[in-house]
Amino acid sequence: MTMHNRPDTPFHDQPSWEPRMRSASDQLRVQPRPDSWDRVRRQLETSSPRAAHPKVVRMRSFLRVAAVFLIAFGLWVVFQPSSLRDPLVQSESLSDSPAYFASYLQVSQSLEGRPAISEGRRSARFRDGFAGVEATGDSADAL
């Protein structure tokens, strides 16, 4: 039994003309139209990557680095550690928490009754600020 006549092979039980048709098919040649190569060539030209100008290459690599930096910064902003956040702009739930309120109260109480800046330091600043003005005299009149 030949291979082609085994039931499990593609050519099992084939008509007698089929091998002849198979070999005729192998010989089949159809001449394409003359412009068909141009179509393939155009496709090849548009698909093949051309060598880019060095400036373009540098710009591309710069943009790539910038994009990576922006993405990293964006991720840092979104997922930054809570310790780095400004406590005053933290979420409402945190500022409402008893611990936060207790620490706020403690700071407020320690500052209570104390002027924002002492009287002595204020007059000293005043003197320093007008030292140059007193020296010229004209400016003092203008004031």
């Binding site: 098919s25 089949l28 040649r29 159809v30 001449q31 394409p32 139209r33 068909s36 190569w37 179509r39 393939v40 496709q43």
Partner: peptide, 24 residues
């Protein structure tokens, strides 16, 4: 190779233009 490949495509596709597109 194109003539033989167009022959293969024509066996499957009766339309000449479709066959040539497939060959290309």
């Amino acid at each position: 190779l194109a003539p033989a490949i167009l022959g293969v495509c024509r066996r499957y596709l009766p339309d000449e233009h479709e066959a040539e597109d497939a060959m290309i």
